[in-house]
């Protein structure tokens, strides 16, 4: 039994065997893929990625009703929870967001570099195809590690407008990427 599961099983001892079973299934089913996914956003920092996965699983355990969702929805939720944990961790670790640092040209020289660069160009093209309003809110929130409220202040528009534009912008981006075959 992995340490996370053992820890959780201990907590659950006096509660619900069914819940314990759900956590075990959850970890077996999603633990590995989640760790691989999270490592990409922790800059391949394995220790940090493992901590993020553990915290994600603990949160899932706290919201055990959500574990009764269908697997693809659980997966989407776990990805989202894990991403937020990484973002919060990055904010705590550094005053300056990582992506503001100049990109390393060497990054493109790793074995899968050309494929990754190609995929990145597809995403960049899709982003350029969006309306200025949609592209702007995606840049000023996610790509610069800012919250809706922070971006709203910078852009001088109400937070509700940022949130709304972000919604329609992301929907448009998803359609573009799906057409180009790089997003499901």
């Amino acid at each position: 039994m992995c340490p996370v599961l053992g820890h959780l099983a201990g907590k659950l001892e006096s509660t619900d065997a069914e819940a314990e079973h759900r956590i075990a299934v959850l970890y077996q089913e999603f633990g590995g893929p989640l760790l691989r996914h999270v490592r990409k956003s922790t800059g391949n920092d394995l220790q940090w990625a493992e901590d993020v996965v553990q915290e994600t699983i603990v949160r899932a355990w706290r919201h055990s009703a959500r574990l009764q969702w269908e697997p693809s929805l659980i997966w989407a939720w776990l990805l989202t929870v894990a991403r937020r944990i990484v973002i919060d961790g990055r904010r705590r670790k550094s005053v300056r967001p990582h992506e503001v640092e100049p990109p390393e040209v060497d990054m493109l020289a790793v074995p899968d570099g050309s494929e990754r660069a190609l995929s990145a160009m597809v995403v960049a093209d899709a982003l350029r195809s969006l309306s200025e309003e949609h592209r702007e809110v995606i840049e000023q929130t996610y790509l610069r590690d800012r919250t809706i409220n922070e971006a709203a202040e910078i852009l001088g528009i109400p937070p509700g407008t940022v949130k709304s534009r972000l919604y329609y912008g992301i929907r448009a981006l998803r359609v573009l990427l799906r057409d180009k075959g790089v997003a499901g």
Partner: peptide
């Protein structure tokens, strides 16, 4: 539908 979009956007960080 949207869960994978952030990963796609992350790819931009590899494109100077």
């Amino acid at each position: 539908d949207m869960a994978e979009i952030p990963s796609r956007l992350d790819e931009l960080k590899h494109l100077p």
